[in-house]
Amino acid sequence: MEDKNNIFINLNEVINNTIEGILIIEEGFIKNINHSLLEILGYEKKDELIDKLATGILIPTSKEKFIKYNEKLFQEISLITKDGNIIPVIIKIKNLNYQNKDYKMVFILDLSELKEKEKMVIHQSKLSAMGEMISMIAHQWRQPLSTISSMLTRIKLKNDMNKLDKIFLDNMLSDMNKYIQYMSTTIDDFRNFFTIDSKKELLCLNEIVLSASKMLEKTFLSQKIKIEITNKELTKINLPKNELIQVVLNILNNAKDAFLEKNISNSIIKISFEEERNQQKIFIEDNAGGISENIISKIFNPYFSTKTKKNGSGLGLYICKNILEKDNLGDIEVSNIENGTIFIITINKN
Rank of each mutant, 00 (worst) to 15 (best):
N242M: 08
I337E: 00
L127R: 02
K232N: 04
N287F: 09
E64P: 07
M105D: 04
S62T: 11
S174L: 11
Q280W: 01
L173G: 10
I291N: 05
T186S: 11
L152N: 13
I90G: 08
S198K: 00
N301H: 08
I50D: 03
F190P: 05
K31W: 15
I271L: 00
M105I: 12
D83H: 11
K126G: 12
V209Q: 01
V334T: 14
I67R: 03
D257A: 06
I229R: 05
W141Y: 02
T147R: 14
N278A: 07
K45M: 13
T230V: 03
M172L: 13
E201H: 00
K82H: 04
K298V: 01
T185K: 11
I332N: 07
N171P: 03
Y179P: 06
L11K: 10
I59G: 11
N34V: 08
I86W: 04
P302W: 14
P302G: 07
K46Y: 12
S78Y: 10
T153P: 00
V121A: 12
I208W: 01
E13V: 04
S272H: 04
F190M: 04
R154W: 08
S36Y: 01
S211C: 03
K31N: 10
M176A: 15
F343Y: 07
I7S: 03
K72E: 12
I282G: 07
E274A: 03
N192D: 15
L216P: 09
N328P: 04
I208Q: 01
N17S: 09
D3P: 09
L317V: 05
I40Q: 02
T61S: 08
S211G: 02
E293Y: 02
M133L: 10
Q279I: 09
K63Y: 11
K46A: 08
E118R: 13
T219K: 05
G289L: 13
K270R: 12
G28F: 14
K31Q: 09
I269N: 03
N159Q: 04
W141K: 00
T147W: 10
F8S: 06
D47S: 12
M136H: 07
T341K: 06
D165T: 01
Q279L: 04
S335Q: 10
K200N: 09
E2D: 10
Q279C: 03
I108H: 10
N171W: 02
M161F: 01
C204R: 11
L96V: 09
I30P: 05
